[in-house]
């Protein structure tokens, strides 16, 4: 599973949040970025989604910061 796959983000967030809650926040983040929901995103798109999630605070922020750091380190 790749860092830029939505299923990866959902899996990590699912450790903290209920499924219905995490589906809601992910949909919101994607929509606020002006993107459509799909599984594979470019690195730039995933950074945008993660930035939105960081703005939400809470466990969204924790997970998003973790994935963002891993994306940066992977370069």
């Amino acid at each position: 599973m790749d860092l830029c796959e939505l299923s990866f983000v959902k899996k990590k967030l699912g450790r903290f949040l209920r499924n219905d809650v995490l589906e809601g926040v992910i949909k919101q983040a994607i929509s606020e970025c002006g993107l459509i929901e799909k599984n594979d995103y470019s690195v730039e798109e995933m950074h945008k989604i993660l930035e939105r999630m960081i703005g939400f605070g809470g466990f969204c922020e924790l997970v998003a910061r973790n994935i963002k750091a891993r994306l940066i380190l992977r370069k």
Partner: peptide, 13 residues
Amino acid sequence: YLVGKAVGGELGK
């Protein structure tokens, strides 16, 4: 600190 921040955010929500 980041874990505390996450918990704080969730408490707020």
